[in-house]
Amino acid sequence: MPAFTLADLQAIAREVIGDREIALSPEMEAADVPGWDSLNHTLISVEIESQTGAAVDAQQLAQCPTFGDLVAFVAARLPG
């Protein structure tokens, strides 16, 4: 995965939460998304780290106010 985009985050969220209709936008936050609870947040964080190699953890990602912020946070920590 050469970059990390909102579409990548959306794909991971759909897979982890098991909802193919989740649609994320940059200004949304986790509280707006049914199914994105604290347990799934941890699983999503693990999946982001696994797929991108970015050194991020669930607590760091939970502090990103919006999905736009989260994507930027991960993108800034991609390896290489």
């Binding site: 909802d19 949304m28 509280a31 707006d32 998304v33 049914p34 199914g35 994105w36």
Partner: peptide
């Protein structure tokens, strides 16, 4: 509808400390 859905998700999480799986 998306606005109502997000509002329900947020309200239930805050009020009941439980996130709905689907709205």
């Amino acid at each position: 509808a998306a606005e109502s859905r997000a509002a329900i998700s947020r309200m239930l999480t805050e009020t009941f400390l439980v996130k709905p799986r689907d709205v």
